[in-house]
């Protein structure tokens, strides 16, 4: 199965003498072509969930499978390589590199893998075009609007042709219209490019684009039963 699977994942933090359980026995499976949302209030464990799914943090218990490969016991170097080759991150407030043009933001991913070929450049331009960013490729992040920046971040997350797309509150800095636009385009890309995508959000308006919705409260995950398909 290509996709991502978390099995019985628990994460505990030690804070002073108290132990805080950020995630408790969480299991979730996302297949290629699925767009899943995780919704919850702040402090519910969303970020911890995303960090573990994104190979940034190790769980206390449980295991993570990416494309049927168990990455639970990988060291920092292997995790870095998993992030580079198999995961596309869309970070909150885009988090673009300020001194790179829109096109270079995408190509840097290829550069970190080794070299940038002509095909990579063509692919980057195609992604930018798909996301409505043609003619913006020479602009710097500070010359782009918030929505444009977030779309650049989406394009960047697809650049390494990952199997998993993880989005951390992609709409948090956008107004409703821009938010819809961005999530809609993200959903489109996930479908056309057949990726397994997880979006962490607290923005209820965006859930209609997702195939499944999970609620997370105090570290416990539960799937929302939807009354109506969109």
């Amino acid at each position: 199965m290509s996709g991502i699977e978390l099995k019985n994942v628990t994460k505990r933090y030690k804070e002073n003498k108290f132990e805080i359980t950020a995630l408790e026995n969480v299991s979730v499976q996302v297949k290629a072509g699925e767009f899943v949302a995780i919704v919850g209030p702040s402090g519910s464990g969303k970020s911890t969930f995303l960090s573990i799914a994104g190979a940034l943090l190790k769980p206390t218990e449980g295991s993570i499978m990416i494309n049927n490969q168990n990455i639970t016991d990988f060291d920092e170097k292997q995790l870095s390589s998993v992030r580079l080759n198999q995961i596309g991150f869309i970070l909150q407030t885009a988090n673009l590199i300020p001194y790179l043009t829109v096109l270079d933001q995408l190509l840097i991913v290829k550069k970190m893998q080794g070299t940038v070929t002509k095909e990579d450049k063509a692919f980057a331009l195609e992604l930018l075009k798909d996301l409505g960013l043609e003619n913006k490729e020479k602009k710097y992040p500070n010359e782009c609007s918030g929505g444009e920046r977030q779309r650049v971040a989406i394009a960047r997350s697809f650049m390494n042709d990952p199997d998993i797309i993880l989005a951390d509150e992609p709409t948090s800095s956008l107004d409703t219209d821009r938010g819809h636009e961005v999530v809609q385009q993200m959903a489109e890309q996930v479908k056309t490019r057949n990726k397994a995508a997880i979006m962490v959000t607290h923005d209820e308006r965006m859930l209609s684009y997702c195939d499944r919705v999970y609620r997370i409260v105090d570290g416990k995950l539960s799937e929302e039963v939807r009354t109506q398909e969109v």
């Binding site: 870095s80 580079l84 991150f89 988090n95 590199i97 300020p98 991913v109 970190m112 997350s157």
Partner: peptide, 16 residues
Amino acid sequence: TNQFGVLKAIGGSNGF
């Protein structure tokens, strides 16, 4: 620090 954090999150190695 934040920029380097982003680079690392999207898979940039320490060496890079």
